[in-house]
Nucleic acid binder design. Structure first.
Lengths: 76, 76
DNA sequence: CCGCGAATATCCCATTATGGGATATCCCGT
DNA sequence: ACGGGATATCCCATAATGGGATATTCGCGG
């Protein structure tokens, strides 16, 4: 199922991840610091260089104040 | 952040993943077939042998009829 | 246009995770 | 204790990841 990373659904997911961060008025560096991770981690998460697992998404969602569902592209 | 897989939070997450499946009255094999994946995939997801990314969780959640938030252990 | 500093993306590659068919185990009703 | 369904483990070639360092892009003031 790993291959799914480069599907349209993932692309949309990544787009939302970025959109939510920007809407929250945060830079990747700020998010990185808040989570105690390197900036490249945030960048990779948003560009699809790496997968974002369930609990990681939950942390992003918390920071951005969004429900988890908000990030999931509906249908396929 | 990968290391987090063996944290208490993940353990709880995995517990819920299984709980939801059982509550839905499905076996790992049935879920596997529904998702077009091997049974070992479902087993590994529930035992923490592998990470469950955001979109994968969404598929499980769909099958089990649960909100994504339901799977996320609150706090810490 | 040019220059800067901030913001974001890429490199690199040793280390670690993953896929999934096959097989072993576990679990439980009878 | 047996039968068989349900779940866990094996194995290991292949693919993903981490993260500091570095490159690139983006705005914007002058």
């Amino acid at each position: 199922m790993s291959g799914t990373l480069h599907s349209e659904a993932y692309a949309e997911f990544q787009r939302r991840l970025r959109e939510a961060r920007e809407a929250a008025g945060l830079t990747q560096t700020e998010v990185a610091e808040a989570l105690g991770l390197p900036q490249s981690f945030v960048s990779k998460s948003e560009t699809g260089e790496r997968r974002v697992d369930a609990l990681e998404l939950a942390r992003f969602a918390g920071l951005y104040e969004r429900r988890l569902d908000w990030f999931i592209p509906k249908l396929d």
